[in-house]
Design a protein around this nucleic acid. Structure first.
Length: 552
RNA sequence: GCCCUCGUAGCUCAGUCGGAUAGAGCGACCGCCUCCUAAGCGGUAGGCCGUGGGUUCGAUUCCCGCCGAGGGCACCA
């Protein structure tokens, strides 16, 4: 029996109590079956009687008593008891609980996937860096978290597209081009240009590819360098993200917004919704109608579109492409954009609580041996995605960055991350997976085909088996919660707890027959349990884009 | 000045849509491998959950003030 099935049963009981007049009629409260912190409180507990007592003449404990009495009648429930101020603690039969292993094995790779977000068509945009340099550690965090968010909401049933907005237009591009050009010609890079060592490499590569480039007139040369450097840099970003297992469905060029007429279409949409106005020769969007603290300019007095105009067009375009929810993952340095982006959605005639969601990710602070490292392209102290992957590997990097909520500031010590890799939680979780894989491998070598042996779930009655089964049963709810809250770190934290439950089980419960012992029911039952645990860990790691190794 | 995020063990951080005794890893200390992976398990030490009020059966969680940290407030991109 899964926790959800249990909750459904309790909901049914509550509905009965309403029908009988024991509890006042009203909306059916959401019934939550929780895993109590202390195992003394049963396999599952609910506080539904506490919440319901306000609508009844009965005190909480008495109400809980009625609910407990009826729950105990349900097949599969061993005991249901009232505890504390009015909690109902439930214990399942070991057979009922053990049956979960079969459910998990049958579901396979789809175990944990659900329908909490089915029907939603979602665009998840993240990173969206300028193509003017390598991706740094901040981007790396959004790469890990954004990709995990996409995977998790897809697992919850949503149709998901991941997207990278390429800021390939504007003065930053020109500065970038000018910097590379200066470097190629042996001239000093302009003060407001890009100064990283990679500029020299880019210049050298571009000149090597086309030695005639430096003989072009300056104005043509600037464009040539800008475009060549753009192409190389974008390709490099794509390649490193590929290495990082973050694959975007769409790379959306800002320029293309202009070339395709999307900007005009976007503004037309806003105009027809009636939130645009002219003032002092400029065209504005009245974002203050929807909570922004000031109105924003779309078209400057000189007739040029603002960057904001492109932002609005981009949003309108996403909606036109069929997405009913646009999720943006922005760095904390852009949090001032939250209100205006939401206002854009409202100005376009959408529901800013339904169609747009702007998530803010806090910065990553880096220390090396306890001392803060200032990230600066200019000073050449940036830590790039490449660096990180090279030092700690994709699995450790992805896992470490996605096991914290995106909105909490993070401090990582490079020395800790590199030298303490064996203490990294990712290895703890992966190790559990490898250990199980090893047991299953050994079973196969002993000629045991557990799938075709009779599985008696009632044999899984050891405290640690029970605990492991309970943890496995939580997985679908963890996935759904992570998806709804856009918090994939919950999956990582869960996996760490699940791994602990497995290690504790493994420590005490021997799985395979020893020596010349015959194969018995308990061996088969434990192999099913191992298989279920392995599947759950593998599925969870996959949601984080981390591999589940069979050997370590 | 206004707005956002944050303040939990020595360090890095979970937990909080109000619930039963506040957790993990690292660091410190003590135990456990004739047998399925010891990258593991068990135990000890370590906390006025920043602070002062409020809401209620119950607050680390919700509301307000204060203190402290970081970030943002362009006809820039």
């Amino acid at each position: 029996m899964t926790p959800d099935q249990l909750a459904t049963a309790v909901s049914g009981l509550v509905a009965d109590l309403m029908a009988e007049g024991v509890v006042a009629l009203g909306d059916l409260p959401e019934v939550r079956m929780e895993r109590p912190k202390s195992r003394d409180h049963g396999d599952y507990a609910t506080n539904v009687a506490l919440g319901l007592s306000k609508r009844s003449t009965l005190p909480p404990r008495e109400l809980a008593g009625i609910i407990a009495g009826r729950l105990a009648q349900i097949p599969g429930i061993a005991t249901a008891e009232v505890a504390g101020p009015g909690f109902v603690n439930v214990r399942l039969d070991s057979a009922t609980q053990g049956e979960l292993a079969r459910t998990v094995v049958a579901a396979g790779d789809l175990w944990g996937h659900g329908t909490a977000l089915s029907g939603r068509v979602v665009n998840v945009e993240f990173i969206s860096a300028n193509p003017t340099g390598p991706l740094h550690l901040g981007h790396t965090r959004w790469a890990a978290v954004g990709d995990a968010i996409a995977r998790v909401i897809a697992a919850a049933g949503a149709t998901v597209t991941t997207e990278f907005y390429v800021n390939d237009r504007g003065v930053q591009m020109d500065k970038f081009g000018a910097s590379v050009m200066a470097a190629a010609n042996g001239r000093p890079v302009p003060d407001d240009g890009y100064h990283g060592g990679y500029i020299l490499d880019l210049a050298a590569q571009i000149v090597a590819d086309d030695p005639t480039i430096t003989s072009l007139p300056d104005d043509e040369q600037l464009i040539a360098f800008r475009e060549a450097a753009y192409a190389v840099q974008l390709a490099q970003q794509k390649q490193v993200l590929d290495l990082f297992r973050t694959h975007f469905d769409v790379w959306y060029s800002e320029r293309s917004l202009y070339e395709s007429g999307a900007v005009e279409r976007g503004l037309a949409r806003l105009r027809e919704q009636g939130h645009m106005f002219e003032q002092e020769g400029a065209t504005w969007l009245r974002t203050t109608d929807f909570g922004d603290d000031k109105d924003r300019v779309l078209v400057k007095t000189d007739g040029e579109y603002t960057y904001f105009a492109a932002d609005t067009a981009y949003y309108v375009d996403k909606r036109a492409r069929g997405f009913d929810l646009a999720i943006y993952l922005l760095g904390a340095d852009h949090h001032g954009y939250v209100n205006r982006l939401r206002a854009v959605a409202a100005c376009a005639g959408d529901d800013m609580d339904e169609n747009i969601e702007v998530l803010i990710g806090q910065m990553v602070k880096i220390t090396r041996g306890g001392e803060e490292v200032k990230l600066s392209k200019r000073a050449g102290t940036i830590v790039t995605l490449d660096d990180l992957v090279e030092e700690v590997g994709v699995d450790a990097a992805r896992y470490t960055l996605s096991r914290y909520p995106a909105d909490s500031p993070l401090t990582l010590d490079l020395e800790e991350m590199t030298k303490a890799t064996n203490d990294n939680p990712v290895f703890y979780v992966q190790y559990a997976h490898a250990r199980i894989a090893s047991v299953l491998r050994n079973a196969a070598e002993l000629g045991i085909d557990w799938r075709s042996e009779e599985f008696d779930p009632a044999l899984l009655d050891h405290e640690r088996e029970n605990n492991l089964l309970g943890m496995i049963g939580e997985f679908p709810r963890i996935v759904a919660g992570a998806a709804e809250l856009r918090e994939p770190h919950r999956v990582a934290r869960y996996l760490e707890d699940l791994a602990t439950a497995y290690h504790r089980f493994y420590d005490v419960c021997w799985v395979l027959p020893r020596g010349d012992e015959d194969l018995a029911g308990i061996h088969v039952a434990r192999l099913w349990l191992c298989a279920a645990a392995r599947q759950t860990i593998a599925n969870g790691l996959d949601l984080l884009g981390v591999s589940a190794p069979d050997r370590m």
